[in-house]
Structures are given as structure tokens and as C-alpha cells.
Design a protein around this nucleic acid. Structure first.
Length: 538
RNA sequence: CGGGGUGUGGCGCAGCCCGGUAGCGCACCUGCUUUGGGAGCAGGGGGUCGUGGGUUCAAAUCCCUCCGCCCCGACCA
């Protein structure tokens, strides 16, 4: 039975998500700061758990943490041309401080490649300085047109790693290692979110990167959510920021850089992967609280008897279980059952006079909502039982999410099949590798290439292009990138919309609103276009 | 930006057409009875009716202005 105040997923998935966020008390809208949210204590606790899991892995793979400034001189941001083009529309500027206009405006970081690049140029001298492996935990700001709690907000929290390597091969190794051993491992083992690892297309890659790799997860509406990215910048940023080193042969060379990040969007992924119509579901390993104990009593004497029993019962829990005892006296047990279910605590232990007498407890597991997930167990050996049950739940959640994804993924060989499949979830198909086809699919069926997966199934199924119907092309090239995943093209219900020009006077127009002839390389700050690009046609 | 909707205690809404100084549910506070799946009764506190202006003896209500938010269109690093 759905909880009060929660729209069932089948009715309106988007509203369901918002209801979960609100009812589980994860976040509040920062209504006075458009597009921002307040991470409330329960929501922030999830972020802290994510931070812990990632930070451990980042450090275990040889990185150290540091912190760079929030403000970036605008000229620095402008240095890498593709990067500028990618970010210009969503950057917020500080033009006035200390009571006067600044000689040069600052931008509030949308990401830190540029300011970190500036310092790396100073710090890197010799091949002995490499690799340089630094991570920072930070907030960033991107002026998004349409926001949703955790999934896309104007300000968000993330971790951004920035590394410098002697050559592209080493940078590539780093980029892939982070994706596999840090991000995917964390997502699957701790958050129980199955992910597809792969390469982004040219069209979808990070502005200024050579290659972008990403994790894609399937939400319960069948749509993809990008849940982590890792970029190999090659020499692009090193050239823009002059990050050079002297190699063993006394030759000065450009270094290669990488950057990689995951954000508080993961909280959104967590919600949309596991939760149900009863509320939030949090996998045990990531859960700030794993077990909640609800005492049941009528009289004062029963109350003290039960609370004493709880004291004894939880004596050896510390260090093995993260738990809390809900001894509030102003709400009924039934209310507590519903509330903790809503908040996604993996296990609930109920204990009343009858249990004290029989030395038992009632254990309810959140992954099976309602009374169906409740059973009576002896207090004897309870701690081991609970620890084991948490692991069972953890694995069960992962298996359930994986099964869901597999049930909503189809291999397709024709255009019609592709068109149908992307309505339900992911489709896997061949692609001839052209942006032209990619764009056409996007235009015609609102689907995007999420990723070219590392895991390539046997190609015995045949070679087909979903756009084989294209009339002009007589023979399709042998696909170089077979088996792509497509999905409902917009990430999990996010629909950007153009913003009124008045909102940010002087701001570069967002894509789609650019007047004819507009080009980022030709903004007043950048002067004439310095690059050999399509814009010279104008 | 184009089209549509909406703004009233913390939240969700009614009242507006037909002007007379604001009401309901939830939440909150107090007390008593309750407590194994969202307790009951009684009492109580809380609102510049988005903003500015106009009409009127009198405006939540009628007229104009501006602002916010939501939905659809336009499609993302």
C-alpha cells in the first residue's frame, strides 16, 4: 500500500521522485536561491557516506586531497577554447566586490581544470614530478536552466580529480583505472547500483577532452543516469596552460592531464535505483543508520522492562551495526514503522513485552515492504543474524536492480526495433560511428548514445545499422563501434529549457538561443576568432 | 521566448463569478485517555490573502502593473 503523500511510480515517476526527497526529509528547496537545495541532515548523511567510500578508494589508488579557490579569473577560464564553448552559458560571474567593479571579473568555478592547470604549470618541472595525483572535494556552480533536487542543481557537491602524466598512455591508464576501480567498484559494491562502463561519443564528451568515459545506470523509469565521468585530456589543457616537463633525455615535453568526478547526483541515482512506492530504500553498506529499534509498551513498567531489554540486546552491536533506538514517547509504534520505512532504514527491530517474555524480536526488512518483510527471530544470536541479513539485503538490491536493467535492455537490429526499444529502456545496437546518424536518431526518436560499452557481446548476431533505411547511402561502413547503448535520450526526466535573456544580462546566450553568427571564440573578451573552426564561414 | 495555469497560516486547499475585514484538512501547543502498522477526545496559538497602484464608504474578491512558481513547446558537457 503506497504511503500517504507519495505518488506511485506508475502514476508519475517524476513526482514520485520529488515526493521521496521531501518525505524522506533528504532536502529542502532553497526557494530564496533559485535552483539550489538545502541538503538536510539525512540527505547530507548519505553524501558523507558516499564521500567516505570514494575517498577511501581515491586514496588507496595513490591520490591525495587538496583544495583550490572557488573563484577563477575569467581569463583563465577562457584559455582552452573548447572548454570555454562548453561552459560559457552556464557560468556565473562576480563583477563587483569591495564596493567597486573588479578590473577582471571572476567566475564561480563550474569545474576546476583551468585554475588547477594554472598551478600545475608552476608545479610540474621534471619527469620526476610525475604523475601528479590530486583530488579535491568541492562545491561547483553551473547555471542550469532546469533543476531537480540532487540530479541537477545550480550548486552541487562533488569530487574532482586532476592528474598530470608523462604521456597519453599513462593518462589513459589513470582515466580507465578511476572509472573501473574507483567509480564502478564503489557504485556496484557500496551503492548496489549496476553500471555500464564505456566511452562517450565525440558529441557527448567533455568540452576539451580527448576522450570521455562514463558510467551509466538505469533508473526505474528505464532512463539512463550518467553517474560518473573520467576524462583523458591528452595535451589539450597542458598546451593551453603550458604544463611542461623535462624528460629523461632533457627534452621539454607537454604533459598529459586527466580529470574525473562524481557528484551529489549519486544521491539521486541511489533513490531512483532502489526506492519504491513506500519510500526511500537505502542499501545497508551506504546507510547512515542500518538498524532502528522500536520499543513497544503500554504502561510505565512495561516501558522500563522493554528499554532494559534493548540495552542488553544492543550491548554488542557497537562496531558491528550502525543503529539507533527510537525511544520517542510522543508517537505510536505504528507511526514509527511507517516513518522508518519511508526513510529507508534497511532493518527495523521491534521489541515489546511479549518479545521480552519469549526472548524474541520482530525483524522487518525494508527491501520487502510492509508486514510481508517482518518475521520473529530469537534474541539469541541476533547480532550475527542481523549482520548477515544486511549483507543479504545488499546483494538482493543489487541483483534486483541488475535484473531490472536486463529486462529493460534489448538487442536490436532494425530502425523500427530501436525506435520501439528506447521507449522501454536501453537498446543495444550497431552504429556506423558518425555524428550524423547519432543526431538523426536523437532528432527522430529522442534517444541518445549513452555510451559505447567496454563489454562487447559476441558480434555473431550480425552487423546492422539502425539507420540502414537511409536512402542515399548505398553501403554502410563496417561499424567500428558496434553495440551501443541507447536510452530515453534525456537523463532521467531532466528537461532543460531556455532561460529568459533578462535573467542574466550580458551572459552568452545558451545553445539554441544563439543568434545567427554567434560564436564563443568571438566574444568581446576573446576578440577575433583565433581558431580554425567552422565559424569562419560567417 | 511562444502557449496555458497558478500565487490565501508551515504544507495542501476553499472563499473570488455576485465586494462587507478570512475558513477547512494536515501539522503545531496544552491536558486526559491511548500505544504490536500512520491513535481518540477536548481546548488553544498562528495569516501584510505574491507586489505596487486604481475603483469604492468598504477589496482576498473588480481593474491595471510588476514579480514568483508550475505545465506544454523548443533539446543537454
Amino acid at each position: 500500500m503506497p504511503k500517504e503523500g507519495i505518488t506511485p511510480r506508475a502514476t508519475d515517476y517524476s513526482q514520485w521522485y520529488l515526493d521521496i526527497v521531501r518525505n524522506a526529509d533528504l532536502a529542502d528547496y532553497a526557494e530564496v536561491v533559485r535552483g539550489c537545495i538545502v541538503f538536510k541532515p539525512t540527505g547530507y548523511a548519505l553524501w558523507e557516506a558516499i564521500q567516505r567510500g570514494l575517498d577511501d578508494r581515491i586514496k588507496a589508488t595513490g591520490h591525495v586531497n587538496a583544495y583550490f579557490p572557488l573563484l577563477i579569473p575569467k581569463s583563465l577560464l577562457m584559455k582552452e577554447a573548447d572548454h570555454v564553448e562548453g561552459f560559457a552559458p552556464e557560468v556565473a560571474e562576480v563583477t563587483r566586490a569591495g564596493g567597486e567593479d573588479l578590473a577582471e571579473p571572476y567566475v564561480i568555478r563550474p569545474t576546476s581544470e583551468t585554475i588547477i592547470g594554472y598551478f600545475y604549470a608552476k608545479w610540474v618541472r621534471s619527469w620526476r614530478d610525475l604523475p601528479l595525483l590530486i583530488n579535491q572535494w568541492a562545491n561547483v556552480m553551473r547555471w542550469e536552466l532546469r533543476t531537480r533536487p540532487f540530479l541537477r542543481t545550480t550548486e552541487f557537491l562533488w569530487q574532482e580529480g586532476h592528474t598530470v602524466h608523462a604521456d597519453e598512455e599513462d593518462a589513459e591508464r589513470e582515466t580507465l583505472m578511476i572509472l573501473n576501480e574507483v567509480y564502478a567498484d564503489f557504485a556496484e559494491k557500496e551503492m548496489a547500483i549496476p553500471v555500464i562502463k564505456g566511452l562517450k561519443t565525440e558529441k557527448e564528451k567533455f568540452a576539451g577532452a580527448l576522450r570521455t568515459y562514463a558510467l551509466e545506470a538505469m533508473m526505474q523509469d528505464g532512463r539512463a543516469l550518467q553517474s560518473g565521468t573520467s576524462h583523458n585530456m591528452g595535451e589539450n589543457f597542458a598546451r593551453a596552460f603550458n604544463i611542461t616537463y623535462t624528460d629523461q633525455n632533457n627534452t621539454v615535453r607537454y604533459a598529459c592531464t586527466t580529470s574525473w568526478g562524481v557528484s551529489s547526483r549519486l544521491i539521486g541515482a541511489l533513490i531512483m535505483t532502489h526506492s519504491d512506492d513506500e519510500g526511500l530504500v537505502v542499501p545497508p553498506r551506504i546507510a547512515p543508520t542500518q538498524v532502528v529499534v522500536v520499543p513497544i509498551y503500554k504502561s510505565d513498567s512495561e516501558q522500563s522492562t522493554v528499554l532494559e531489554a534493548i540495552e542488553r540486546m544492543t550491548g554488542d552491536w557497537k562496531g558491528r551495526l550502525r543503529f539507533r533506538i527510537d525511544d520517542r514517547d510522543n508517537v505510536t509504534p505504528g507511526f514509527k514503522f511507517n516513518e522508518w520505512e519511508l526513510k529507508g532504514i534497511p532493518l527495523r527491530v521491534e521489541i515489546g513485552p511479549r518479545d521480552v517474555e519469549k526472548s524474541s524480536v520482530a525483524v522487518a526488512r525494508r527491501d520487502i515492504p510492509g508486514k510481508a518483510g517482518k518475521h520473529i527471530v530469537p534474541q539469541d544470536g541476533l547480532t550475527d543474524y542481523l549482520v548477515g541479513l544486511l549483507e543479504t539485503i545488499q546483494q538482493g538490491l543489487f541483483d534486483r536492480a541488475l535484473r531490472f536493467r536486463e529486462e529493460h535492455t534489448r538487442d536490436v537490429t532494425t530502425y523500427a526495433e530501436l525506435s520501439e526499444a528506447v521507449e522501454q529502456g536501453f537498446a543495444r545496437c550497431y552504429w556506423d560511428g558518425t555524428t550524423e546518424d547519432e543526431q538523426r536518431i536523437q532528432d527522430e526518436m529522442k534517444a541518445t548514445i549513452r555510451v559505447i560499452p567496454f563489454d562487447q557481446p559476441d558480434r555473431a548476431g550480425g552487423v546492422c545499422s539502425p539507420v540502414e533505411k537511409r536512402p542515399v547511402r548505398s553501403s554502410l561502413p563496417e561499424p567500428t563501434n558496434p553495440n551501443l547503448y541507447w536510452s530515453g535520450w534525456r537523463p532521467a526526466g531532466i528537461r532543460p529549457k531556455p532561460v529568459h535573456a533578462r535573467v542574466r544580462p550580458g551572459r552568452p546566450p545558451s545553445r539554441g538561443l544563439r543568434p545567427p553568427g554567434w560564436h564563443p571564440h568571438r566574444t568581446p573578451e576573446a576578440g577575433q576568432c583565433q581558431r580554425r573552426c567552422e565559424c569562419r564561414s560567417r
